[in-house]
Design a protein around this nucleic acid. Structure first.
Lengths: 212, 212
DNA sequence: GTCTATATCTAGATAGAC
DNA sequence: GTCTATCTAGATATAGAC
């Protein structure tokens, strides 16, 4: 094993265990054991346990950042929106431990706190921009104050759909249906503000999606 | 100190520390220390650490249950709704550790899991009933499928507004403004489905509320 | 780079005197 | 009921041989 490979092995093993059992319930010994390396070796590659979680969070950022960028001169389209949200939720699902134990990680690991806080603010700005875009292209009709509330509520839904699914007793994120339903729910937030034909288009899309 | 008093002292101390530092970061020794009793004495009154959290959750249930009951033959009124939601959120705020670390507590403590799951389902049913009531009295116009999504989204918002406020860097729940803003955001979910004059009434209420 | 062995610490929990 | 003392387990992390 070269240096790079073991480090990656520890990361992928940790991700698996964190997702499966929750980050607070997985010790460095568990990780080393599952990865078939010694505990000492693990600490050759990582300074601390939090370091592993932080590195995984950085990997998450690399996955999620490109999905959040919105092209300046593009007219938003309902189906694109749907796909985009689906891809975002998929990426979140692969790092679901981050969201399950978000607030504990957030207060414990300062670097993660800073980065996550920034991410949220960017997401919020991005959502406000999206809403404005939909409005300017005549697809959506909404007033200033409601835009803010809508962006905020969307962001909350996007941040906590994973722990919500768990707590509602949903069959788990291995099952793709949870993801689809969560995506659909978020888009239903937009529905009442959409004009025709986009409103109907969204409803039809939701219907099709549900059957697939 | 009689038996009852020490038990209560441990509970109130735990609640304070859990809320302040997060349940995972408070040990039984911390609690005993803060309560000015010995660690051994703490274990005379509680079998385990989880037992304390569970008992606090039961106390939360006692606070919250009466607030969730809806009278059968009452026409829902926007201002009543607002007040009701405010009282619910206040009660949640007093037990905010439960929501900050919900998913960890949920998987760790089986009795809490059962009870919380049941609570969520009842809340969901209650919300569906509320929506139906608003619809029947002509205050709201919404279709079947959207009702489900609305109830679901409302429930998610109600369950995770506390960790969301924390993660957004809101000045903390000691400050009452967070609570008000969170209540307002939830009610904005209903807004697009309300008819006049209730829609305007809600907007005005939000305005007043914000200034107070 | 990797291992074994171990240091250190802190948590939850119990025993037994008072 | 309450205390002091202590057990036990498990966690993070390090030392030093290979």
């Amino acid at each position: 094993m070269t240096r790079r490979n073991t480090r990656e092995l520890v990361l992928s093993t940790s991700l698996f265990l964190f997702n499966e059992f929750g980050e607070p319930n997985v010790s460095t010994n568990h990780i080393a054991d599952e990865a078939d390396i010694s505990p000492g070796n693990l600490y050759y590659h990582f300074r601390s346990r939090d370091d592993i979680a932080l590195e995984l969070f950085k990997r998450y950022l690399l996955h999620i950042q490109p999905l959040l960028e919105i092209e300046e001169n593009t007219v938003p389209d309902i189906e694109d929106l749907w796909l985009r949200l689906h891809l975002i939720f998929e990426a979140m699902g692969r790092f679901r431990f981050l969201f399950r134990d978000l607030n504990d990680l957030y207060t414990r690991i300062r670097d993660l706190q800073r980065a996550f806080h920034g991410l949220l603010e960017r997401q919020r700005t991005s959502l406000l921009g999206l809403i404005a875009g939909l409005q300017n292209s005549g697809i959506m009709k909404i007033c200033e104050r409601e835009s803010e509330a809508l962006a905020d509520n969307t962001l909350l839904l996007m941040t906590y759909w994973i722990p919500y699914a768990e707590v509602r007793g949903d069959p788990g994120l291995a099952d793709g249906t949870v993801l689809s339903r969560s995506v659909a729910r978020v888009l239903y937030l937009l529905l009442p503000y959409l004009r025709e034909p986009e409103a109907s288009q969204l409803k039809t899309l939701a219907q099709t999606y549900r059957q697939a």
